[in-house]
Design a protein around this nucleic acid. Structure first.
Lengths: 211, 211
DNA sequence: CAATTTTTTGACCGATTGGACAAACGTTAG
DNA sequence: CTAACGTTTGTCCAATCGGTCAAAAAATTG
């Protein structure tokens, strides 16, 4: 009985689907969608290919499920950007949260980056819909702060892009960051260094203080 | 006669190799290495697969040639960062040049991003060698500016990362940028808006002017 | 022209791919 | 025990992959 793909009915199904998604995240995020094979995912999940296909009937279904889950996590920090509290503190918190996500969920970041890089064929609708709506909303919040003189006037859209770019860089380009920093500076401390730098950059910029 | 791969001897060989590289840049930058097929490249180059393989014997050879060419172009702006001239002007010029590259060579940027995202298996040596050396050198230049009080004190490595991230974002995440900006704001003017914003960000930050 | 070399292609090959399927295995309920 | 259901796997398949090869077609040379 029960339709095609087993819906997370039994306990075992929920568990196995979880194992598969975890394995698929690892594989997809390092090889991209087309560069990953079902066999790779099955092996990483510790099961046979047909067994994996019993839980997800197509390779794309795994990717789609993964992507949908990711998006909620991914947009959460921006959703939290609220009009209550001090504007500059809010912005600083947002930057810190995004940087923590790059540190704690680098695979998710790379999965997302892979998708966007290749033209976002599978999530274009979401970018133009849900994401754009959310950004438009937060742009208005930031604009309010700027009008009130709480934040320097600047393009709010590109401000958001800059925050995304600088924070996600530490997940997506991690290999390059570590290679350039070298063994001594490239250790665990790099995220704290980055946090300090980004805070200064976004708050005060680089122009030397008027002595 | 002549070794395996035809070296750019005849005029026709140089031309065809150029056509292939142009087509491969298009294909590789949108699909990644593993996601691209020789057939795709051959079709984009307007020739048959065996004919393409007559000029480049392996798929990897095309990618390698492309990558080597790219790197020179890619590092050029950083190499130009010189100790002569006003420091803040130099930094502003560097940001502008990098943004222009994102605008004029988005495929090259995405090709590079694809490689890094997947762990840089083919250019790791270059990252740890040539790139690191160049960055270390420029870090010293920037440090000198900071010691001289010409630039606010900050971590020079992360400053460079921030410039890379914010500028390349407009090439690598172009789809997302355009989707979020929408049809009206997402037109050709987005690079000028970005340039204005980035200049303000890196020079003055976002803290409101002390009124 | 004819001889030689370079360029192009159709046909083909073994390996890998995503996926189908039925049979086997395990588990639980009566 | 047995029947029923959920789970797992070995085997197979058609499509696609990177790459080979010999022979045809152009171009070049004398």
């Amino acid at each position: 009985m029960e339709g095609s793909t087993p819906r997370g009915r039994t306990r075992i199904q929920k568990e196995k689907r979880e194992v598969i998604l975890e394995a698929a995240l690892e594989v997809f995020s390092t090889n991209g969608f087309r560069g990953s094979t079902i066999d790779q995912i099955a092996e990483a999940a510790g099961m046979s290919k047909p067994n994996l296909l019993y839980y997800f009937r197509r390779k794309e279904d795994i990717h789609e499920t993964l992507m949908h889950r990711l998006l909620d996590t991914w947009l959460a920090p921006l959703k939290e950007l609220d009009d209550i509290g001090d504007p500059m503190t809010e912005l600083r918190s947002y930057i810190r949260r995004k940087l923590e996500m790059a540190r704690d969920f680098p695979r998710e970041s790379r999965l997302f980056a892979n998708e966007i890089l290749q033209g976002a064929p599978r999530i274009m609708a979401m970018l133009e819909g849900e994401l754009k709506t959310l950004v438009d909303e937060k742009v208005e919040v930031i604009r309010g702060w700027m009008r009130a003189g709480k934040v320097a006037k600047a393009d709010p859209w590109h401000l958001i892009f800059a925050i995304w770019a600088t924070t996600q860089h530490y997940a997506d380009f991690d290999v390059q960051v570590r290679a350039v920093l070298g063994p001594d500076r490239g250790g665990d401390g790099r995220f704290e260094d980055a946090a300090r730098f980004l805070e200064q950059l976004f708050l005060e910029g680089l122009k030397p203080k008027a002595n």
